[in-house]
Design a protein around this nucleic acid. Sequence first.
DNA 1: TAATTGACCTAAG
DNA 2: CCTTAGGCCAATT
Length: 104
Amino acid sequence: MALVHRVDLNHVQQMIWQAVAQIPAGQVTSYGTIAKDIGFPNHARYVGATLKKLPSDSRLPWHRVLNSKGAIAFAKGTPQYQEQRLRLEQEGVVFIEGRAQLVG
DNA sequence: TAATTGACCTAAG
DNA sequence: CCTTAGGCCAATT
């Protein structure tokens, strides 16, 4: 049998979408956490690359995914940063010094 | 085919 | 707190 150690990236993508869809409104997680949760601890970047491909009309809560520091990955001041932050604030997420605050 | 890029992460100064 | 360096890996050039 031809050993196929090759990973099915389509499936990985689906798991990523699934994981992102699970994030409750008003809560956030990180690219690395998602990667770890789906069993691919070294694919934090791939999580970002996957979200990047999302169509603009996607209903997936991509805005609930931040970097390991709890900050928005986009450069401050960019339209994408603004949109993500606005979406989060509309869900009640509070930012202090550019970092989303933990429930508390 | 090789090099570069990127919505990342962590450890170490 | 900040910066640097190394690691990571699919996608793009």
